[in-house]
Design a binder for these strands. Sequence first.
DNA 1: TGCTCTTGTCTAAGATCCTAAACACCGTGA
DNA 2: TCACGGTGTTTAGGATCTTAGACAAGAGCA
Lengths: 189, 189
Amino acid sequence: MSKILNTVTIDVGARLRSVRTTFGVSQRELARRAGVTNGLISLIEQNRVSPSVSSLKKVLDGVPMSLAEFFTLDLSATPQAFFGIDELVELGNPDVSLRLVAAQRPSRQLTVLHERYVAGAATGEDMMAHRGEEAGVVIRGRIEVTVGGATRVLGPGEAYYFASQLPHRFRNVGRETCEIISACTPPTF
Amino acid sequence: MSKILNTVTIDVGARLRSVRTTFGVSQRELARRAGVTNGLISLIEQNRVSPSVSSLKKVLDGVPMSLAEFFTLDLSATPQAFFGIDELVELGNPDVSLRLVAAQRPSRQLTVLHERYVAGAATGEDMMAHRGEEAGVVIRGRIEVTVGGATRVLGPGEAYYFASQLPHRFRNVGRETCEIISACTPPTF
DNA sequence: TGCTCTTGTCTAAGATCCTAAACACCGTGA
DNA sequence: TCACGGTGTTTAGGATCTTAGACAAGAGCA
């Protein structure tokens, strides 16, 4: 009776094999460093077992690589690297323009936006809250940023950084259009 | 004979409990969504077992959250959110200024920099290559960007996005200072 | 050819994970 | 007071992971 492979679309085996060969070590050498057996590494790489987190941690310690890095790996080839102004994808509205870098890219780890708020514009009545972290630098104009109860007006060259779980809101309280370059991870768009 | 807990400094249990309570679901509800038993979730949260990757994946699918996000979680409280111009930490040199947002933050997921290249400045003779992804938007001046063999000159409003493993290099080929807001993950500073 | 060293794979047996079911606790309401 | 529905915990046993060791295939060398 043949086993049903537990591939679960993560393919731990392929990732591990990729990492191991990239670092140029054999199954036995990695096993020795990690304090496990070479057979286990063979089975993991074939997806014949789904290793426990503690085993996988031990194995990766031998490389070394963190679990976070391991699961964040992108196994695909690399696509378009440069983007002209009209290749940024517009996601916002006339008042709040959000122009996304590398929107076409399949599995981004990073969202970088060129944001423009016309005078008086804001990110809506409700506070936003989602996973991840975000940061940005004001390059023109002035904007009021509210994060988890705290509010501050930021001008050109000033910056913010916060965990996105905190409720947050942006509002252009100046007279001119405000521009921000922002980044967040993991990508929300 | 009492068991030795396999904590391995990751504390999967605390992470899972934190995630579950943040999303406001009970062990039984999460178990139902994930297709596992509530007992397993209890055992994992107490670090009485080190779950297999496939089990942990199933559990996180019920939240939902990816394994990469899970292992990248920061369990600490949230610190300073706003940064004045002189609170950005200078990391570069007179020719290439790199001003880092939230440098003080212990475990950032994101590096955001305000970069300034004086006319003729570049990021050194050798190409750089490290893990992760990086992206940026030019806000003033013109810069020549080389990524894995390809070269392009970018001006204000134009952008780049690439995997950091690719050898890359920046060079200001214009006459005025060039400014860029850039982001990369995982953080390299 | 024959020996040696390396590689990755396979297979019992032991260790650990995971399930099913029961348990104890707490708050609510009849 | 008792039942009820909710919470998280515990435990025996079946399922799966992990080990120890054997196996086969390839490369280098005498």
